[in-house]
Design a binder for these strands. Structure first.
Lengths: 231, 231
DNA sequence: CGCGGTGTTGACAACAGTCAATTACTGTGG
DNA sequence: CCACAGTAATTGACTGTTGTCAACACCGCG
């Protein structure tokens, strides 16, 4: 499971596969809406999500929330570097969450003369992918119109979930409330609602019992100004 | 000069100071508005800015531009990891630019058993600082109103420039056109103009011949919902 | 059955982009 | 020294968008 995911970034040795298997054996579970960072004692943050969705977010003094990045299965969460500056934002579980310790992975990536070159390459690629996704988020918030912004997010989620085998026939399970979507997209809840309806009316996508279906990929790509920014 | 800047992140050995001095000796210069990444041949991208401003940006298919991050003196630009995914965005010089090769720095930071522990710590801190700044940009674009967004950017610039000694008595030189500001803030040019005037009318800040003066830090902090996200 | 969270809708006001015209401000060449 | 062109900044009028408020429907749950 974990090994398959890593294999999409770099080929792994048997030892590396075994290491991942060991990690998976020691998974932890977290209830939804519990802050992962707040209780540093509960878990030491470099972790990888195995199942469920989480969000990296900032709170504003006036109580508003902005979600920086949605964290999906296969994503790393928590401070990756060795130096800890004061955390700029927190991570919260949006659904029931299953995670494994990512410290061995991060250390493998940092090693100058890697014992586990495959893991190192994979983790480094993941970090870069993550940076690219942050760029996408900035572009969405800064320059995309209503429909494009929503469509772009859906396409990104579809792509990311597809990589870990969680997207089927142009659709995927989407456990987010419109409220959370609003905090990702920088919209009001009402506006999220209307935007979704517009896209549905245009026959571009469909949302049925917690599942998104992308009905016309071509037109969605066009609307979102989609460029494949990462491989 | 470079050494002083690094010292604000970690204390350096004599050898490390010397290394920085050597780097500074081999500075390169770039004319404004020339794309730093386009011509990979001209310079190999992990570089550090010594003087001048640059911008990391993305182009949208429809010709719009979104600036992801302004790069100031002391900032690293270019891919930092060892794995090169297809670049998600480019970097352009906004002014006359002076840069030095940052490869030795990045390598020092990556070393598992650092020959230059001071440099390693400093570079790692810079990378984290950079991540925090990306978060700030996302929050600005997603959740801040007109005035707050502008004020927040000015406060960030003031802080970042202050760290490298380029801010004096609550003011700093600001070589950006309103057009560029618009591409940073996700505004239209006209809206940038009006926002600046509003802030000026409110006595919060002043822009005179390429120099920004923050007149009432308290009220600016309040308006921007400022929280010190990085040390 | 009532309750709280979620999704949906309409009315309305404030906001922010576009267009277009005007005014600086620059460096250039005559 | 002035005329000129090109860029940047500014302004007003107008329009479309987006947030806010408030009400209502729906659903799972105690």
């Amino acid at each position: 499971m974990l090994a398959e995911h890593f294999s999409t970034f770099a080929s792994l040795s048997d030892a590396e596969v075994q290491l991942l298997r060991d990690l998976a054996g020691a998974a932890q579970y977290h209830p939804p809406y519990r802050d992962l960072h707040a209780a540093e004692a509960l878990l030491s943050p470099p972790r990888m999500i195995v199942a469920g969705w989480a969000a990296q977010y900032c709170m504003l003094p006036d109580g508003q929330r902005q979600i920086i990045s949605l964290r999906l299965p296969g994503d790393l969460v928590g401070p990756l570097g060795r130096v800890h500056l004061p955390a700029s934002c927190a991570v919260a579980a949006l659904t029931e969450l299953e995670t494994v310790d990512a410290k061995p992975l991060v250390e493998a990536a940092d090693a100058a003369d890697p014992v586990h070159p495959g893991l190192a390459r994979a983790v480094q690629a993941m970090v870069q992918l993550n940076d690219a996704q942050l760029c996408s988020q900035i572009v969405r918030l800064g320059r995309q119109g209503t429909g494009g912004r929503f469509a772009h997010l859906m396409l990104e989620l579809h792509g990311r979930l597809g990589r870990v085998g969680l997207a089927r026939d142009n659709g995927f399970a989407m456990p987010l409330t419109q409220n959370v979507l609003a905090d990702v997209l920088g919209f009001s809840v009402v506006h999220v609602n209307r935007t979704m309806q517009q896209l549905r009316r245009d026959g571009l996508l469909e949302v049925k019992d917690g599942r998104v279906h992308l009905l016309q990929l071509e037109r969605l790509h066009a609307l979102a100004g989609w460029v494949t920014r990462w491989a």
